[in-house]
């Protein structure tokens, strides 16, 4: 299994937080009609996807010499 890069770990955490926000936000919307969490979660999810597309085009991160051995 491929080990995700540090950027990948960051984006994975952002995606997990945004999916959690969308899920809890949808529940909150169903309970009370409040949209703030759903909105922030959706915005964050969109930004995570766009950032992933952007960062995929960047040159690969340089691995520190100590980690290469």
């Amino acid at each position: 299994m491929a080990v995700p890069s540090r950027r990948g770990v960051f984006l994975l955490l952002a995606a997990m937080l945004s999916i959690l926000s969308v899920g809890v936000g949808a529940w909150l919307f169903w309970l009370s009609g409040a949209r703030h969490l759903l909105l922030v979660g959706g915005l964050m999810l969109c930004l995570t996807v766009l950032t992933w597309i952007w960062w995929r085009r960047l040159p690969a991160e340089v691995v520190a010499p100590s980690r290469r051995t």
Partner: peptide, 29 residues
């Protein structure tokens, strides 16, 4: 090096800031 330097890092900053708001709203919920 979890986020790239220069202009590409701005998206990382926006994600961190939005993550802060998401955590605030999740905590409140």
């Amino acid at each position: 090096r979890f986020v790239p330097a220069a202009r590409a890092g701005l998206a990382g900053y926006a994600l961190v800031a939005l993550g802060g708001y998401a955590l605030l709203f999740l905590g409140s919920a």
